[in-house]
Amino acid sequence: MIKADKSKRTFFKKVAAVVGFVAAADYLGNLMSVRGNPIQQANDNSEYDVNKQKKVLLQKQLVSMTDNDKKQMLDELLDIHNKNHA
């Protein structure tokens, strides 16, 4: 007859296994519910895109253009345009 192992070590092992199992099940459950709700997922992704744009724009700066800047820019724009249409 085999005697049941009731040491503290075995008890902790079992507790760890149960906690691990519950965590894995919870993670899978969450994953399934997100996948199961494509509208929510689409909304979350779109919101993420908008937030990303906000972050990018917050690092931008509108700079004023000098007369030279304006001339240079206009020349460049017209030059590119004319090259494309040559």
Partner: peptide
């Protein structure tokens, strides 16, 4: 979308 420096493009996720 990644390339746009202004992130001005929108993707149809749904």
């Amino acid at each position: 979308q990644l390339a746009c420096p202004y992130q001005a493009r929108r993707f149809n996720w749904g």
